[in-house]
Each structure stands twice: as C-alpha cells, then as structure tokens.
Simulated assay, not measured.
Amino acid sequence: MRMIRRCWLTAFGLTLMAAGCGTSEPAGPGENATRIERAPVPDNEFTPVELEATIDDLVAEINENSVEPMQMTVMLKTLSTFFAPIATGANRAMGELGVTGNVVGPLEQTGDQQKSMELQNEQIEQALMDGIEGIGISPFGEANAAAVDAAVAQGVHVVTLDSDVATSKRSIYVGTINSSAGVTAGETLLAMLPPAPGTVVIHGSTDPTWIDGLERTQGAQRVIEAAGYQVLVRPVTWTDEGEADDVESMKTNIETADPPVVGLIGLFNVAYRCAMAAEAAGEPDLPVVTFDFDPKTVGYMREGRVRATHIQRQYYEGYLVPYILYGIKTLGLDATREILAPQMVDETRFNLGLDVVPGDKVDDYNDFLDSIGSNQ
C-alpha cells in the first residue's frame, strides 16, 4: 500500500482538490437538500447551447432527489496543456456538487506510455483502497481495462474521458467521437478547395493500435476521397525531434504530388506542422485546417496561414464527468443515460461535438474560453 501511494505521489505529483465548495449540503433524514446551482455561462456565439441544455436537464433531475455525500476522483494523463481545461471543468463541477473529490495527474507526461499505464492502474487500486465511489479517467489504452473492470466489480462506476477503453465495463465514455470529428475536419477543408482533381495531405495516424487516431484519420480520408480528391497520409511523429521529419515529409508531398496538393489537414495538437510544411515548400497560401488550440496553431491562424481549427471542448469534458458520476449514484445508470440521450451516439458513448473556429475568430474564441475560465 505504501509503495502504491509513493508511486502515485511521485508520478502523478499534483492533486487538485474540490471538496465541499458547492452550494449543496448533505440532507438529514426527511430533509430536502439545498439545490445545486451551476456557475452561469455567458452568452457567446461559441456556447454549446444543446450541450448546456442537457447538463441543465441532468442537474434539474438531480435536484429532485436528496443530495448524498460522495467521494470521486478524476484521473488525467497530465494537468497541463491540453488537459488543463479538463481539470478546470472537473474541479468546478465537483465544487458545485459539494462532493469530496480531486483531480490527479502528473505535471507533464513521461513519454513512457507503458510506465504511465502501469502507474495509472496503481492509481485506480489506491482509489479503491481509499473508498472512492466514482472514477473518471483518461486512460492510456487497453492495458487499463483490467483495472477499470476491477473497480466496476467493487461497485464503483467508471466514466472514461478524452480516450476510451471500449472493451472494459466502464459505464460511459465522454469526449470526441473520432470518426465523425475526422469527417467534420474534412468538410471544413473541402469548403476551401478548388474543384477536384487534386491531392490533400493528411497529417494523421495509420497506427492500428491507436484506434482514436486511426478513426479520426479514416473519417477525414473518406469524406475527402468521396469528393474526388486523392489523399496522402503522413503519420504524425510524437516527439519534438520528429517535427523536422514531419515537415520535410509533407514538404516533399507538396513538391512532388500528382495531381498537385491543394490543401492540408492536421488532425492532432501538433497540426501546425502542416503550415510549416507549406511554408517550407514555398506554398504558404495552401489551405490548412487543424485540430486543437496549441499556441503555435493560434499564431499561424493570426497570420492567416491556418484557415480554421477544431476544438474538442475539453472544459466540458471535465465538467460533465463529475455530474455523470453523481447522476449515476443518485438516479441510476439507465436514468442518467436517458437524460444524456440527445448527445449519446449509442448505449455508452456521449459525443461532446466540436467547436469549429475560423482563423478570423481567434480573439472571439479566446474571449469565450476566458469567460469559462478554461484558456490553456
């Protein structure tokens, strides 16, 4: 037990606490609980109205029941960069619910995925020893499935976010549905392209062991090829040193493709490399669309070199998970799924959707993120 705890504190070093900060209080026998009150969301063109309505419906139903104390934890791959808004959302939701909860994760990823998986499994084991009643987790892969199933076997509901372990007994996945996200990105680029024929370079993934990346890439590829264009996929290189390789490979594609390259799509957070490749090939005006809101991507958007990007609503990813875990405890899994139905694509997957941000809306989108406290 001490060894597990030491690993947790060393590898997952920072814990953000959110306990008893909400407006709800445990009710005594026969008493009505204080109503849960959500933090107001400013009206903005990027506010996800339908998603907000679903959250309000869930809160309203929870408010019809007596509030019960609950312990939960949300485990993230890291607490920085892409995951920082997720941590913000999760802490805010736990504060509103008044539960005893925390958000845990390392300040930075180690780069050793196998070690990260093992440590996350130890983290789950420790949570069970500590009496946690609900777990939200951004898993590293199928190697987390057995630990998730062990939690479920002890009566602890598990909700995955950002990435999934579909083979496990987790209750619900919350996040991007990658195949449809790829289609959306393809459609965004298609609106900017000259008529076919032409070639489109996709900075994506062909790795069959990374299902999320492969499905997103295949979704974009399908919609672009259906419109009559050829596709060249450059598999992303996940190292800083790999940036030069990615850029050089896509530069060569631009210089040699027949028919000529007419646009590029980057499907992950290093998508700005597409703009770098276009510049290196002497074609800085080629249409480029990207994913996520990396500072380098934002810089290229301001320069007009990235025409649009796709944001995965990380804040809402984190914000929804505690409410779903609490809904499952107080209402039951089936009732919670019924309330979430407008965004459920099947029995277990909740689609957060995407924000499509045009290049000339960078400041407006930053204002929206600031308004909900989730800027990276």
Score class of each variant (00 low, 15 high):
268 F>A: 05
234 R>G: 13
149 D>K: 12
89 G>D: 02
342 P>M: 02
283 E>V: 00
353 G>V: 08
158 V>I: 04
234 R>V: 13
10 T>P: 01
316 Y>W: 15
249 S>Y: 11
28 G>M: 10
172 I>V: 15
96 E>P: 12
353 G>E: 09
330 T>I: 13
91 N>R: 14
93 A>Q: 01
163 S>I: 04
366 N>W: 01
6 R>A: 08
315 Y>I: 01
167 T>V: 13
335 A>R: 11
215 E>R: 11
80 S>D: 08
152 V>P: 02
197 P>H: 04
261 V>D: 05
67 V>T: 08
167 T>N: 03
192 M>F: 07
22 G>N: 10
353 G>W: 04
123 Q>D: 12
204 G>R: 05
122 E>Q: 09
113 Q>P: 10
280 A>P: 01
230 Q>C: 06
130 D>I: 01
39 A>K: 14
302 R>W: 03
283 E>L: 05
112 D>G: 06
184 T>Q: 15
46 F>Y: 15
145 A>N: 10
240 D>T: 05
214 L>T: 08
23 T>G: 08
37 E>M: 13
63 N>M: 03
263 G>F: 04
283 E>H: 10
7 C>H: 15
110 T>M: 03
133 E>T: 11
369 L>P: 04
96 E>T: 08
5 R>Q: 14
165 V>K: 12
293 F>A: 12
226 A>S: 12
183 V>E: 12
66 S>M: 15
223 V>C: 01
133 E>I: 15
219 G>H: 00
76 L>R: 01
156 V>Q: 00
346 D>I: 13
84 A>R: 01
257 A>P: 10
369 L>V: 07
31 E>M: 01
107 L>W: 09
95 G>L: 03
172 I>L: 14
346 D>W: 06
298 V>L: 07
366 N>K: 06
40 P>C: 09
177 I>T: 02
193 L>W: 00
23 T>F: 01
240 D>Q: 07
133 E>Y: 12
320 L>H: 12
189 L>C: 09
65 N>S: 05
88 T>S: 14
295 P>F: 05
72 M>A: 10
200 V>Q: 03
152 V>T: 06
35 R>C: 09
69 P>R: 08
157 H>Y: 02
68 E>V: 06
173 Y>H: 15
142 E>W: 02
15 T>V: 05
347 E>Y: 13
140 F>Q: 06
77 K>V: 09
226 A>R: 13
173 Y>N: 04
12 F>L: 08
133 E>R: 13
313 R>F: 07
261 V>G: 12
